[in-house]
Write a protein that binds this DNA or RNA. Structure first.
Lengths: 220, 220
DNA sequence: TGGTGAATTCATCGCTTGCTGAGTTGTATG
DNA sequence: CATACAACTCAGCAAGCGATGAATTCACCA
């Protein structure tokens, strides 16, 4: 039952035309620790963030991770399941927002914008956020994650602060502001938003958030 | 050289199992007028708007249009070129914005929001706008169209009205507000934005636009 | 020390994709 | 009436896709 494969472990005379680019492995388990699962997830986040779900092939992810395509399926089953794993947003955003909401009411809007931007600027959180945002337009699960995340974390942070009429709508509009900002800053790249400092953006958008927190003219 | 094909025009005894669903055509040019080109473009807009560029196949577009797949290539060459044609945004938006900007300064922000929403509500303009917005996250051309359109039409409408520091940024932030609104209203569907009346949205977001038109606190 | 199971590669299957060329039918032009 | 071109369908190709199963190698535990 253990007959050798069609190509036995012949040591490959290695003609000089093959520069052996991505370090071929002969097959079988590699020695040492197994961080492959995480490598695949990182590679997936990177690819999904860059090109979206549909335009990213499992083969490409595997290549980025430096492993065989079958390993991706071995660990995550299907491309879809891998994608869902890649959507897991790091917990930084809710934390950051809650922290921003803790302080004084003056400058609250500005602090929220800064907290939002800071998480996006974080290199370790960014691929997951980018994946979510980029795929939200085409993939239902990504849209759902974005929805829950936006409403959830904002409500959690500002739930005690915001009162009055139409609280749900006003929270949604704050989320709209922040999502819209990320969209034009990182995805559509609407000049000059990508090159504007967080401070200036906070100065411009802080009052907008404040306006939703305390509307000057209650809706008629 | 004109030998008949393998299946000659045999009239197909038509066994009752074939309900002949999409009205088969025998081949060759159809009599009467040719609106097929436009039908294909409409079908493309519909499909692209619904599922995005990558998830839409040429075959599906052809099926939606009720024609053979090869016709799509006959008229538009490649899927990419067809997509670019589908992105052509109807001229209504610049018009509507200019019209809104014409009136009094009081309530200007609110009128802009209403104009923006009205164009989106228009059934004939919607597929193209939806296609653009949905694909902007994954397709460079779509992002470029969205960019040019947003900045261009808003600057054209408000160029004379908006003055002071950082005009470019403030215009971009107005565009961000409107794009973000369309995103949460039509794509991500962030509750309760999709079900909110244009009037209430205008009441909530009009002041935001006004704030960008006339910042109360000039940026430090 | 032997055996079980996890990690890894390879080869491949079945399907869908965008696209093409050949052939057929209609319309228009001389 | 003949020629030419535009519209249209059919059949199929080459490439890429997601996914699978067998074979191989390693780690670990009894």
């Amino acid at each position: 039952m253990t007959l050798p494969r069609s190509t036995p472990p012949e040591p490959q005379p290695q003609p000089p035309e093959t520069p052996q680019p991505p370090q071929r492995h002969p097959g079988g388990r590699r020695p040492g620790e197994n961080r492959t699962r995480e490598q695949i997830l990182d590679a997936a986040r990177e690819c999904f963030a860059e090109r979206g779900y549909d335009a990213t092939s499992v083969r490409r992810i595997a290549e980025t991770a430096g492993v065989d395509q079958a390993l991706v399926h071995h660990f995550y089953g299907t491309k879809e399941k891998l994608f869902l794993n890649a959507l897991e947003i790091p917990l930084r955003m809710p934390e950051a927002l809650a922290e921003a909401a803790a302080g004084d009411r003056v400058g609250l809007g500005s602090r929220i914008v800064l907290a939002h931007l800071r998480v996006w600027e974080d290199a370790s959180a960014r691929p997951a956020m980018m994946t979510t945002l980029r795929s939200a337009a085409t993939h239902r699960s990504a849209a759902a994650v974005l929805r829950d995340y936006a409403k959830g974390s904002i409500r959690e942070a500002l739930g005690k602060v915001i009162t009055g009429e139409d609280v749900e709508l006003r929270i949604a509009l704050i989320a709209t502001t922040l999502i819209g900002l990320s969209l034009t800053r990182h995805l559509v790249r609407l000049d000059p938003v990508p090159d504007t400092s967080p401070q200036e953006l906070a100065a411009r958008l802080g009052p907008v958030i404040d306006l939703h927190l305390d509307p000057v003219t209650p809706a008629a």
